[in-house]
Computed example of a mutant assay.
Amino acid sequence: MLLLSSTTRAEPQRVVSLNLCTDQLVLALAAPQQIAAVSKLAGDELLSNYVKEALQYPSVGKDAEKIVGFNPDLVLATNYTDPILAAWLQRFGYHYKPYELPQQLSAVPAYIQDVAELLGQGDRGRQMTAEFQQRLSKLDNTLPPVRVAVVSANLYVAGGGTLPDQLLRRMGAINVAALDIANGWGYVSLEQLLSWQPDYILMQRDSLNGASRAEQVLSHRALQVLLEKGRRINVPAKYWICAGPELVDAAELINRRILELEHGE
Rank of each mutant, 00 (worst) to 15 (best):
M1F: 09
M1K: 08
R9P: 00
A10F: 02
E11R: 15
E11Q: 15
R14Y: 13
S17M: 06
L18W: 03
D23I: 04
L27H: 11
L29C: 04
Q33H: 14
I35P: 12
A36H: 09
V38M: 04
V38R: 04
K40D: 15
K40L: 14
L41T: 06
L41P: 00
E45C: 01
L46P: 02
L47F: 01
L47A: 08
K52F: 09
K52R: 15
P58R: 12
S59Y: 03
D63M: 11
K66T: 12
I67R: 07
I67W: 12
V68A: 05
V68Y: 07
G69P: 08
D73R: 02
L74F: 07
A77N: 07
A77R: 05
N79D: 13
Y80S: 08
T81C: 14
I84S: 14
L85N: 03
A87Y: 04
A87K: 15
W88N: 07
W88V: 04
W88Y: 10
Y99D: 02
L101E: 02
P102T: 03
P102I: 08
Q103M: 12
Q103A: 11
Q104T: 07
Y111G: 05
D114C: 05
D114N: 14
A116C: 05
E117G: 00
L119E: 11
L119T: 09
L119R: 02
Q127A: 11
T129I: 11
F132Y: 12
F132K: 01
Q133P: 05
R135W: 03
S137V: 04
N141P: 01
N141C: 01
V148Y: 05
A149I: 02
S152D: 04
S152M: 03
A153W: 01
L155G: 03
V157A: 04
G159E: 03
G159W: 05
G160F: 12
L163F: 13
P164Y: 04
A182N: 12
G184M: 09
W185D: 09
V188P: 07
L194G: 13
W196V: 04
Q197T: 12
D206K: 00
N209R: 02
G210F: 00
A211S: 01
A211N: 04
V217Q: 13
S219P: 06
V225T: 10
L227D: 12
E228S: 14
R231C: 04
R232H: 09
N234D: 11
K238F: 11
Y239P: 00
G244K: 01
E246W: 11
A251H: 08
E252P: 09
E252F: 14
E252L: 13
L259W: 02
E262N: 08
G264E: 01
